[in-house]
Design a protein around this nucleic acid. Structure first.
Lengths: 243, 243
DNA sequence: ACCTGAACACCGTTCAAGT
DNA sequence: ACCTGAACACCGTTCAAGT
């Protein structure tokens, strides 16, 4: 009842499974999405799903992926369809960041289970990195320093993807693997996420202890907190609280 | 190994169960906290727990409760031990709100599972209401309007309890129960949460459709987003980015 | 009153077997 | 290649029984 069963014998695919899972989560909440129930909705046995997905974890990662794809589709819809490259043109960073966050919110309202799911995943899905790369890119091109861009990513936290979590846990920046492997991984990352890599490099250069201290989450927290408190205090003084 | 087994036969109590659950979550993560495993840590059978807690949900609610108690303890520790009533004195609202959020963060760092747990609970734990009431109270006494106080609660969202969720879902303000029961509930709420009740009343009075529109989460979202974007733009212009 | 054992209806997942 | 049935090791919870 929850998922549209389409015909009766469509050959099952990763996309079809993910679509059914999203529909089920929309209709009955994420806890209802079990391998057995999902299979039943698809008119198939639970174990069949394992031919298209690596398991429950892979299913949840796939759900996150589809959510991010939806955000990007929403963003494209909200944008004048003129330019097709990533605009280094006159669009200012505030507009772009704002539109991205509003697109994310539109999708999160559509799928209320998404923020919780994203924040509960033990690993950050690769698609999310691309999303943050785009966000950072438009700020850097807009003239922000990497330092401020970094703080901005933290501050925007829950606005950008509906969850407030450290984007980079310390372990992510190559702490517990041997140096050469870490460097290779970083180089590979730099190719697909140039802005993120440049940001990490710039911040590591400035930090007292590059390997540990490049992202001081306590001061990021206080920066965001004061940003909000400053804004509230300003709103309190000026009577321009246009309802 | 995860929980301190203290002696061998201490008579088990709600508090002892909750403490063991928190210790287990700290040591091995929230997924490790199952009724059976928790009972084993306590040297008891799973079903014994039901004599002290109403079930798994009650256990999780209890965990949230202990986290909020810890935040309040942390707050007391961070505050000069002079005044013991809630200070209507010269302390300004920014200091108070800031200290509350920093206390919350201290506790969240200690219990990384807490933000996810709080945001995953289907119902907002009563203790959290008290926390928000205190937050709102110090802002109102500091001179903020109820409207701005309301927005502030939304904006502070994840800073205040580590999660970014609507504090009041529409259902909470008595939508689906009959009017007289809703009014009685509201009166009961007003007694223990006067600031929150006054805020809801003030906002309902201004709204176009009081029953539905008193909390427009879309405009709250945009307010917070613009608050952050304004702050970032300002930080970008002034070179006072004191590292 | 507090604790227990067996049982029930669920999970995710493995594995050998079908087609 | 894709799907399946039976089985395994887990869940939370009920219920009658112990002390």
């Amino acid at each position: 009842m929850a998922a549209t069963r389409t015909t009766e014998r469509e050959p099952l695919s990763r996309d079809r499974v993910l679509a059914a899972a999203a529909a089920l989560a929309d209709a009955e909440g994420l806890p209802a999405v079990t391998m057995r129930r999902l299979a039943a909705d698809l008119g198939v046995e639970a174990m069949s799903l394992y031919h298209h997905l690596p398991g429950k974890g892979g299913l949840l990662d796939g759900l996150v992926e589809t959510v991010i794809v939806e955000i990007e589709a929403e963003l494209a819809r909200s944008r004048p369809a003129t330019e097709d490259t990533d605009g280094t043109d006159g669009t200012d960073w505030r507009d772009d960041v704002r539109r991205r966050c509003l697109s994310a919110r539109t999708v999160m309202v559509r799928h209320p289970w998404a923020p919780g799911l994203i924040s509960s995943r033990p690993t950050i899905p690769p698609a999310a990195y691309g999303y943050y790369e785009a966000l950072l890119g438009s700020m850097i091109r807009g003239g922000l320093t990497y330092h401020l861009g970094h703080r901005a990513l933290h501050s925007l936290g829950s606005m950008a993807l509906g969850f407030a979590q450290e984007v980079f846990s310390p372990a992510d920046s190559g702490g517990d693997l041997d140096p050469e492997a870490a460097e290779a991984e970083f180089a590979a990352l730099a190719e697909v996420l140039p802005y993120m890599a440049a940001m990490a490099a710039a911040e590591m250069h400035d930090a007292d202890d590059p390997t540990l201290g490049w992202c001081d989450s306590q001061s990021e927290f206080e920066f965001t907190l004061d940003l909000i408190l400053d804004g509230l205090a300003r709103a309190n003084e000026s009577p321009t609280q246009a309802r």
